[in-house]
């Protein structure tokens, strides 16, 4: 019983953190790349995938996309669908690396892969919904910048897990 209460509290805290990072990064201006976000919320998703369970990670990923869109007034608009597609595709990529290729790649590899897939998901859905392939012009540059933010995200996720905070909290 105690353990499930702790787990609910952990999920709520993780969702709040992911949401705060999601909203905070929308204030980082990278004006030459439309809609580009560093994907800081992926730090939380990576920690959940590697330290807890894939289902909690999925729930929190989708939950924070819905809540962040509600908070910024973008729910069910094109940027919302771009976030959703990018978020789900990057989650699937990171999960694939974590579960199937964990002997080859570490959390850094999962983060890099997730970051590039996040850009691809956003561009692909924008291309489908706007019926234009023109937006694919942005992909190489977005993915290039995404590689470095992916490295940073992987570093922070790795440090959080290595800090042993979850062991100290008996989670």
């Amino acid at each position: 019983m105690k353990s499930s209460v702790r787990r609910i509290a952990l999920d709520a805290t993780m969702l709040a953190l992911a949401l705060a990072l999601s909203v905070a990064e929308s204030f980082i201006p990278i004006s030459s790349l439309p809609g580009f976000k560093p994907g800081l919320a992926n730090i939380i998703i990576l920690v959940l995938i590697y330290r807890f369970s894939w289902s909690e990670a999925l729930l929190i990923d989708i939950g924070r996309i819905f809540l962040a869109s509600l908070m910024t007034g973008k729910i069910f608009s094109l940027p919302f669908y771009m976030s959703l597609a990018g978020g789900i595709l990057s989650y699937l990529g990171m999960l694939l690396i974590a579960k199937c290729f964990s002997k080859v790649f570490s959390i850094y590899g999962a983060s890099l892969f997730g970051s590039v897939l996040h850009c691809l998901g956003q561009i692909a859905i924008a291309s489908i919904l706007l019926s234009t392939s023109g937006v694919f012009w942005y992909f190489p540059l977005m993915a290039l910048v995404g590689l470095f933010t992916g490295l940073a995200v992987g570093f922070f996720a790795d440090r959080i897990i290595a800090s042993g905070i979850f062991e100290r909290l008996r989670l």
């Binding site: 290729f101 080859v104 790649f105 570490s106 850094y108 590899g109 890099l112 892969f113 590039v116 992909f139 190489p140 540059l141 993915a143 290039l144 590689l147 490295l151």
Partner: peptide, 18 residues
């Protein structure tokens, strides 16, 4: 090693694309 190879493969591909 896997991460480093992945990083450089992606870096090469995205730089080429850019």
């Amino acid at each position: 090693l896997g991460d480093i190879i992945l990083f450089f493969v992606l870096l090469f591909a995205t730089t080429l694309g850019t």
